[in-house]
Computed example of a mutant assay.
Amino acid sequence: MPARPWRGSRGLTCAPAKPVTDTARLLACAAALACLTANQARAQVAGSISLATNELFRGETVTGDAPAISAGLSLDGPGGFFAGASATVTSGDGDLRVAAVTQYIGYAVRAGDVSVEAGVIHRSYARIVDRDYRRGFFEGYLGASRKGVKLRVYVSPDYLRDGQATYYAEVNARLLQLSKWSLDGHAGLSLIPYDKSGPGGLHKYRDWRLQVSRPAGRLYLSAGVAATNYPVYDASGKARVFASASFAF
Rank of each mutant, 00 (worst) to 15 (best):
V62Y: 06
I49D: 00
L51T: 02
A41W: 08
D65S: 08
T61L: 01
L56C: 05
T53F: 09
A41C: 02
P67Q: 12
L56Y: 10
T61F: 00
I69E: 05
G59A: 03
S48R: 15
R58H: 12
A52T: 13
S48P: 03
V45W: 05
L51S: 07
Q40C: 11
A46V: 08
A43E: 03
A52L: 07
R42V: 01
Q44M: 11
S48V: 06
A43M: 10
N54H: 12
D65P: 02
S50V: 08
A52I: 01
A46T: 14
A68T: 03
A68R: 04
P67H: 13
T61I: 05
D65H: 15
D65T: 04
Q44E: 14
S50N: 10
A68Q: 06
T63L: 07
T53R: 01
T53P: 00
E60S: 14
G47W: 10
D65M: 09
T63C: 06
P67D: 07
P67L: 11
D65C: 01
R58N: 14
S50H: 05
L51I: 12
R58W: 11
L51N: 01
I49M: 05
E55D: 12
V45S: 11
T61R: 04
L51G: 09
G64L: 11
A46Q: 15
S48I: 03
Q40P: 01
V62R: 13
L56A: 02
G47A: 05
S50C: 04
G59Q: 08
V45F: 07
R42Q: 15
P67I: 07
L51D: 01
R42G: 09
L56K: 09
L51R: 05
R58E: 14
A66E: 03
I49F: 03
A41L: 10
E60C: 04
V45G: 00
A46R: 15
A68N: 00
A66T: 07
R42C: 04
